[in-house]
């Protein structure tokens, strides 16, 4: 298994000033994530997981501590540099999909590449098409986002996260808006991607999901309270088969 270090957090702290009070959202978080890991980050609301996700996603910078993404120190980077970094290294999957309305699946997936002038229109088309194939939406490339079910929309969002061939995929409650069956379908997809060597960080408050990842980090009050590898993740596919088929 590859042991390339993708993420290194060194004593990350993040403070917010709310009125006269300083809120310590993260109080010294350190860990490293290697290529090929499927990490779930858990915590109740207020545990600092959203803040951690923002920092991991280069949307926010830590108050102190250092964050290396693929060997690049992020803390000292400017806004624009971080934008470019996100564009090249990170794929985001959000709880509420965040697809552009009235826009086809293909165009939605192409979007990250639109902000990379090194990629030609043809390449962009091809890469987006391939990403949609990879999430099992080969047949729905030209469907508009509002004509698709939640599960399909989330697949499009995952394809969009894959299209720039990122070093890491950051999923934020990616199954939060979906019913159980569709949630498992999406989990199956994440596991497949993991099997193909993708590095995934899945942030959730749902403790059940830790069974399907290869490592589980739990946050509480801005600190890591447990960091346990899971050498035998359960198969989401088997769970999906066990689920009663809905009859309607």
């Amino acid at each position: 298994m590859a042991t390339k270090e993708i993420i290194r957090l060194e004593n990350i702290r993040r403070n917010f000033i709310v009125g006269n009070e300083t809120v310590h959202a993260l109080r010294g978080v350190s860990f490293t994530i290697n290529a090929g890991e499927f990490v779930t980050i858990m915590g109740t609301s207020g545990s600092g997981k959203s803040t951690l996700l923002n920092i991991l996603g280069c949307l926010d910078t830590p108050t102190s501590g250092e964050y290396y993404l693929d060997g690049i120190p992020v803390r000292s980077m400017g806004k624009n540099e971080r934008s470019v970094l996100r564009n090249r290294k990170i794929g985001f999957v959000f709880q509420s999909y965040n697809l552009l309305p009235k826009t086809t699946a293909l165009e939605n997936v192409e979007l990250p590449l639109m902000y990379n002038s090194a990629i030609s229109a043809r390449e962009r088309h091809e890469l987006a098409s391939r990403a949609l194939d990879a999430v099992g939406l080969a047949e729905r490339k030209n469907h508009k986002s509002n004509q698709m079910s939640g599960g399909q929309q989330q697949r499009v969002a995952i394809a969009r996260a894959l299209v720039n061939d990122p070093v890491i995929i950051l999923a934020d409650e990616a199954t939060g808006n979906l019913d159980t069956r569709t949630s498992f379908e999406i989990l199956v997809l994440f596991q497949e991607l993991h099997d193909r060597g993708r590095t995934i960080i899945f942030v959730t408050h749902n403790p059940e999901l830790s069974a399907y990842s290869s490592r589980n980090i739990v946050l509480r009050d801005g600190k890591i309270i447990s960091d346990t590898p899971n050498d035998h993740p359960a198969s989401a596919l088997e769970m999906l088969k066990k689920l009663p088929v809905e009859s309607d």
Partner: peptide
């Protein structure tokens, strides 16, 4: 606003 947020998170800079 959300569309703008999305564009920014997938790599659009302020100037874009």
């Amino acid at each position: 606003t959300r569309e703008i947020g999305l564009r920014m998170s997938i790599g659009a800079r302020g100037i874009d």
